[in-house]
Design a protein around this nucleic acid. Structure first.
Lengths: 265, 265
DNA sequence: TTGAAAGCGGTACCAG
DNA sequence: CTGGTACCGCTTTCAA
């Protein structure tokens, strides 16, 4: 059984104190260049591996950041994740990830796990049905930074990063209108989610600014899936007069709608 | 400054030893039901949060699993990740993820980070260019389980999980042949990667079994991107006689090829 | 069923 | 620039 090498072992070998070894290993400035090199070398030779548990225990920091997102296998979320990973790694942080699968219950459980894992910070994109955020209270209380992104809570005390969803859909709608569309159907998800309610605003504003009337029946909500194309197209085809434009708030769903429409032809 | 509550604080309050408190909190069987309940209650009331650093230090286990994949924002990889997360969470493990972005250098660095984070196990899908695996040696030496998936090393001493790539492409090729294709172009990635070399085998076998000749010029390798459609189509159109079937080993690239082909029409 | 005490392996504080 | 030592908070013997 090969025992772990500790700084004490190194200290004995180089004839210095554990303190100095510790300092050398963490690049503390007040160690003679010579000494540090000797320590670093013997550490390498002895196959030393720093014990992050002991270090974290003492320093009370985990050097890890928690991430809670609705779905890992979402093109958007996973590309955001890729960016997070890059920056976190650069800064010497680990990323601990979990998904809520759009369930509040799981989000609560994930938040608890993250808290118990003592992450130094938390990045969250809410589950669709989450309308309270008291499961993050322990973080707030302990002053652990919580940053929401994309799907942010209504609560104004929370820090969040979002794109300008309203403007984006305003632009998209305006584009369709300029292309000659008069009856644009807008398909979006749960309006409890800021992402979709903001987009709906953009849609409405664009209609208004171009002198088109907003009609409730042209908005289809709460059904954004990779397989919901058929259902959506069904609804659209029932509308009279028939719509001449379609704006879908989700790539996969848009593709599904396209396929469904092709079938109908 | 609110100090952390420890098992000692709880012990004092309930008038028992830290040992018993520890046992109660970790559901050790040899604690009287009464005692345990009392401890659990006061723990909750006092706002106790177990210190996972101390626990890990003592138990020498992190209850976390490392994951290294080429790209986080890949539909395939992220859906695998979703499955891993589900199971890991169920089992009380955290997932620490990182991406190599197809670079050996980063993969090495990620492996080191994971090792230093003392993950209890490691899940790896290799970067394309990785042809040695000595950066995982510390894991092997310390008997930390390393499981490769999808992109596995050649080394037979490694445990790996793969789909039957050969059979899959054999079936796909056979399908095209049955549809009447005689000159099928196969587009795939770096042949150093098992995924692609296995698929190439399947392609060859299928041609053989259906009495078609294999031609080197019908295989396009090393260019699988979301934007490589134009280049690939360029190559295809130069072939004489013109191919009548196309088999692309990657969804995004296949879509890109379709678009490029449409433009050419 | 419960307890005392010795670690786990670093880091921080206070000296020198 | 270097060292002694207490301590972070939990778990694990060994003992009762």
């Amino acid at each position: 059984m090969n025992k772990e090498i500790t700084i004490y072992d190194i200290a004995k070998v180089v004839g210095l104190s554990p303190t100095t070894v510790s300092r050398a290993l963490s690049n503390h400035p007040r160690v003679k260049e010579n000494t540090r090199e000797k320590i670093l070398n013997t550490a390498k030779n002895m196959g030393y591996q720093s014990n992050i548990f002991a270090s974290s225990l003492r320093k009370k920091r985990s050097k890890s950041i928690g991430v809670i997102i609705p779905k890992l296998n979402s093109p958007f979320q996973s590309s955001v994740l890729a960016g997070m990973e890059e920056i976190a790694t650069q800064a010497g942080y680990n990323l601990i990830i979990s998904q809520s699968t759009e369930s509040l219950e799981k989000e609560v459980s994930n938040a608890n796990t993250m808290f118990n894992s003592r992450v130094d910070g938390l990045l969250v994109s809410k589950a669709g049905t989450t309308d309270n955020i008291e499961h993050f209270a322990p973080f707030f209380k302990k002053q652990i930074p919580v940053l929401f992104f994309d799907r942010v809570p209504e609560d104004n005390n929370c820090t969040g990063v979002v794109i300008n969803n309203t403007q984006a859909i305003y632009d998209a709608t305006s584009h369709l209108i300029k292309e000659g569309c008069k009856r644009i159907v807008h398909v979006l998800g749960n309006l409890k989610i800021n992402v979709y309610s903001d987009r709906l605003k953009g849609y409405k504003y664009a209609l208004l600014d171009h002198g088109l009337a907003f009609k409730e029946e042209n908005v289809i909500t709460n059904d954004l899936g990779e397989e919901s194309g058929d259902r959506i197209v069904e609804k659209i085809l029932k509308l009279k007069p028939r719509p001449d434009g379609l704006l879908v708030s989700n790539d996969a769903c848009a593709a599904s709608c396209l396929m469904a429409l092709k079938k109908k032809k």
